[in-house]
Simulated scan of single mutants.
Amino acid sequence: MKLFRMAAVLAVLAGPAYAQMPNLNLLQEGPGKTPEEKAADAERDKAYKETLKKIPDAKASNDPWGGMRSDPPKQPTPKASTATNAPKKTKAGTAAN
């Protein structure tokens, strides 16, 4: 049990030291590309750039309330006499036309 505790303590203490070690790349340069692979990459890049040119420009936002927020509040128009335009009510509470 004592050996297990010592191993756990060493593992906890070694973690931060391992994180500070530099990243060593032992393979400085990998194998180079063949001329065929380079030509295929160039063709792929060219096709990608042509495809990007075909994408249409983004449209304006489809926000139905966008104009409502940006406009200043409108002044209410003065109403003519509202008493003449109101429908007459009968005793039952329904409007008579």
Rank of each mutant, 00 (worst) to 15 (best):
T51K: 10
L27G: 10
Q75R: 05
R44S: 09
P31E: 15
K33G: 11
E36G: 14
A40R: 09
Y48P: 01
V9N: 11
P78H: 01
L52I: 00
A40F: 03
D57P: 04
R5W: 13
E37R: 10
A39E: 09
P35H: 06
P35A: 12
N25K: 10
T90V: 08
D71K: 04
E37L: 06
F4H: 12
E36A: 12
D45C: 02
A60Y: 00
V9C: 07
A47I: 00
D45G: 04
W65E: 08
E50Y: 02
A58S: 05
K2Q: 15
K54F: 02
E50W: 03
E36Y: 04
K46Q: 11
T90F: 10
L3F: 13
L10R: 14
R69G: 06
G30F: 06
A42H: 05
Y48G: 04
L27N: 12
E29P: 05
Y18F: 13
A96S: 13
L24K: 08
N62G: 01
K59V: 00
P64M: 03
E37C: 05
R69P: 01
I55C: 03
T34D: 14
I55N: 05
A14C: 13
T77L: 04
N25E: 09
M6W: 15
E43R: 05
A92C: 09
T90S: 15
D45P: 01
K2V: 09
K89H: 08
P22W: 04
N62H: 02
A14N: 06
K53D: 08
A17Y: 09
K59I: 00
K49G: 03
Y18I: 09
K59S: 02
P76R: 08
K89Y: 11
K74C: 01
R5K: 15
R69D: 04
K2W: 11
Y48W: 08
N85G: 07
D63G: 00
M1G: 11
W65P: 00
A42T: 03
P73S: 12
P78Q: 05
T77H: 02
K79R: 07
K91M: 14
A42E: 09
L13S: 10
E36N: 10
A58M: 00
A92L: 11
N62W: 01
D63Y: 00
P87R: 13
S70E: 05
G66T: 00
A42Y: 01
A60L: 01
P76N: 09
Q28S: 12
N85F: 10
D57Y: 00
P73K: 11
T77K: 02
K89G: 08
K33D: 15
P16G: 12
A40S: 05
A47N: 07
K79T: 06
G66I: 01
A7Q: 14
K79V: 02
N23R: 10
A92D: 15
E50G: 03
A95C: 14
S70M: 04
M68E: 07
L13T: 08
A58K: 03
D45R: 08
A8S: 11
R69W: 03
V12Y: 13
S81K: 06
A17T: 12
L13A: 15
A96D: 12
I55T: 03
A40Q: 11
K91W: 14
P56V: 02
